[in-house]
Design a protein around this nucleic acid. Structure first.
Lengths: 217, 217
DNA sequence: CAAGCCGTGGAGGTCAAGATCGGCGTGCAG
DNA sequence: CTGCACGCCGATCTTGACCTCCACGGCTTG
């Protein structure tokens, strides 16, 4: 149920306990921010969407930025959890790749488009936002790079580069897949990317010994 | 030479031919937009940076948006050209991958940070901007996917997914590489990604028949 | 040499959007 | 029943940024 439906179900005069009201406001804000982006989203829009007046918003959040940050934190945490869970779900590295790819696809597909707040924010010039987005990207990449470093024996810097790359592919392709709505089902897309990535990774030193490969660096 | 140096070299009263003035304004605008983003950039800032007054800006551009779009178009075109040139630079598909990766790195490294206008715009909610960014991404991906489709025999949809992925890796990693300033030199980073991507691609159908996983060409 | 013209400059209008103040209705305690 | 407290609303203020109006000075032409 969207926030606006909730708001219409409970017409404009209803009084809510403080905690519930806050959650409802967060929901409405997310819908508006996702649909319009930070700058185009007016506090009036959010208030109207939630079926309350503007002062109520300011009784729950100090300002527009803090409201946005609350949502951003929430969804950054969510992404990080998904990735970590995926990495920990198995010890088979190929399945790890697949699970991680799928985590990105699931993240992009679900949550009412909240991934836009993280991956397509129009407030990256605000240091507080930039910091959060950079941090979650870095943390995801570090989690991935640990596995890569262990599996390939590459240096810390180099495995980070690859990890950033793998996260990047997942994120970019997942968004493209969602937007393009081409006929490719999610499983197929994930499988395709997993093949691509796994063969790529599997060619590095530790495996190169067993499987022979052309020169690298 | 930055626009502000030009402006200081020619102190504030100088008259310029129309074409030259326009170019100088574009330069100043690019510096400000890159440094501050669209929203934080004030027309006053741009005018001051260029060493002129605001009305002059409006004699060359109808408004802030059009000024931004002029720059955006310019750099979208530049990226597309780089990618197409890289793809056409050889018929060896592995070198194609490397050249294309390198094109993204060069694009991100050079041009006074102009890649931010394309990859990190804070105006993606403006339809005109969204359209341009989407279009250039799509055109790059299509150019890449043609090669992939021909080389692997994958369907149009599937090769587009991979192409988007390759473009995405290049772009994301290049930006990370630029920002992180880790010790990895550009050649090494490009080489690493090329290994990753090429082994990944080379495993698809057409090659799987001849060389099980890796080597050929 | 002189007069006019055109581009430049600083100051101001307008408007959207974030942030806030005095009333109102509802429910509970005495 | 009645007063009080709490949360909510309509209306307003203010800031900041985009976008134009009246004076000035250098170049050109007769």
């Amino acid at each position: 149920m969207t926030a606006i439906e909730q708001a219409q179900a409970r017409p404009r005069g209803t009084r809510l306990p403080r905690r519930a009201r806050r959650e409802q406001l967060l929901g409405a804000a997310q819908e508006v921010f996702v649909a319009q982006g930070y700058h185009s989203a007016a506090m009036d829009d959010i208030a109207e969407r939630a079926g309350v007046s503007k002062p109520v918003l300011y009784q729950h959040f100090p300002g527009k930025l803090e409201l946005y940050l609350a949502l951003l934190d929430q969804h950054c945490e969510s992404l990080l959890q998904s990735v970590r869970t995926a990495l920990a779900s198995t010890t088979d590295n190929k399945k790890r790749v697949e699970a991680t790819m799928d985590a990105y696809f699931a993240y992009v597909e679900d949550e009412g488009g909240a991934f836009r707040l993280v991956f397509e924010s129009d407030l990256t010039n605000e240091p507080a936002v930039r910091e959060r987005v950079d941090k979650v990207s870095l943390q995801c990449a570090e989690a991935i790079s640990e596995v890569i470093a262990e599996d390939t024996g590459l240096s810390r810097d180099q495995s980070m580069l690859l990890a950033v790359g793998l996260g990047g592919v997942s994120q970019v392709v997942a968004r493209y897949w969602l937007a393009s709505r081409s006929g490719v089902p999610r499983d197929t897309a994930v499988g395709l990317l997993t093949s691509l990535a796994w063969r790529g990774i599997a060619g590095f030193p530790l495996h190169g010994a067993e499987g022979q490969v052309q020169g690298h660096h």
